[in-house]
């Protein structure tokens, strides 16, 4: 298992290097960095000095090495627009996105698994049919439309929940070190519900359909029949034996979808005016703020890589067949 993790870490490092290379190319070859930094009245000599000073005349690989080194130090450069360190901006925006992503992923997982198990066990019940039909809508409607519909219903018509933003006032936000959380206040929870549903609906229906299909598959296996023949209770058969055997694919999809949730948060954050890294990225794109865009790229790639690694390790936890044999088999 250790060898496997080391191998995966090497792979992850390679992936991150490739992403860093793309970010670096973006940085250096989309437009002229000097042009982006100085005013129109800067002289050619001054520009050349700055170029030399920033190391832009060094060979390609030295510049790339320096770029990677900076990333490792947590130094993503300065934002052109806000002229402050990009890492500070990320520290400002990331907690909002991560909280939204985690809440919506949890929601998708809990409700998705519950509904998947239900629709598998009560296949022919009317409620299952309703869930299956509604889930089709969840899979096929675009995120922004779901968001707008939810705002229309729950904020505009019913006035139950606020339509946008992460907090009502500064009091709702609690600082823990550099991390800011809205989840310690009632208002914060009220505001996260609609965007979390919007962001997680697709994942929820996906997980539900996956769990349902896997459950139906597992319920047909011999060991489930044998578990029944042993007189185990339905609860133990369904949840102890069947559900656990559906976990490997569910973990895979949930893990991959978590990356997608963070990446797709851009749209949801826009619709709900949620102050997360997605909004930060959109602003950066509009104003060609290359360092911010490059940092966002590296950040998202890192989320995917870390999540994949965690998923791979979870396989070992769930499925003993993947673990190293402690003894050989014999007749």
């Amino acid at each position: 298992m250790a060898a496997f993790i080391v191998r995966r870490l090497i792979q992850a490092t390679l992936v991150m290097l490739v992403v860093a290379l793309i970010a670096f190319l973006l940085f250096n070859y989309v437009g002229d960095p000097i042009n982006n930094m100085v005013g129109q009245d800067t002289s050619a000599v001054e520009r050349e000095q700055l170029r030399e000073q920033l190391g832009l005349n060094d060979p390609f690989y030295i510049q790339f090495g320096r770029f990677v080194e900076h990333i490792l130090e947590g130094n993503f450069g300065r934002s052109y627009r806000q002229s402050r360190p990009v890492e500070d901006m990320i520290a400002d925006y990331l907690p909002a996105t991560l909280e939204l992503a985690v809440v919506s992923a949890m929601m998708a997982l809990v409700f998705g698994v519950a509904m998947g198990v239900y629709t598998a066990l009560k296949r022919y019940s009317a409620f299952s049919q309703v869930l299956m039909t509604v889930s089709l809508i969840g899979v096929s409607l675009p995120t922004f439309l779901i968001g707008i519909i939810l705002i229309q219903i729950f904020a505009v018509e019913l006035h139950w929940l606020p339509p946008q933003g992460r907090v009502g006032g500064e009091d709702d936000l609690v600082h823990i070190g550099w991390w800011t959380t809205g989840l310690l206040s009632w208002e914060g929870w009220r505001r996260i519900i609609l965007p979390a549903i919007t962001l997680g609906l697709f994942q929820m229906t996906l997980i539900m359909r996956l769990v349902r299909a896997e459950m139906l598959e597992v319920l047909r296996t011999d060991f489930i029949k044998f578990a029944r023949a042993r007189g185990l209770s339905d609860r133990s058969v369904h949840f102890g034996h069947a559900l656990k055997n559906t976990l490997v694919p569910v973990i895979t999809i949930t893990g991959l979808q978590f990356g997608t949730i963070i990446a797709f948060a851009i749209i949801t954050e826009r619709v709900f005016n949620w102050p997360g890294v997605g909004q930060m990225f959109l602003d950066a794109v509009i104003h060609v703020d290359i360092p911010v865009m490059a940092a966002y790229l590296v950040l998202i790639a890192m989320v995917f890589v870390v999540v994949n690694l965690v998923v791979d390790i979870l396989y070992f936890v769930v499925d003993p067949r993947l673990r190293v044999e402690r003894s050989t088999t014999g007749h």
Partner: peptide, 16 residues
């Protein structure tokens, strides 16, 4: 008690 045909698939692979 019941015993089924295929011992390879009669046991839940995830439990000791």
């Amino acid at each position: 008690g019941a015993i089924f045909q295929d011992p390879l698939t009669s046991l839940n692979p995830l439990y000791r």
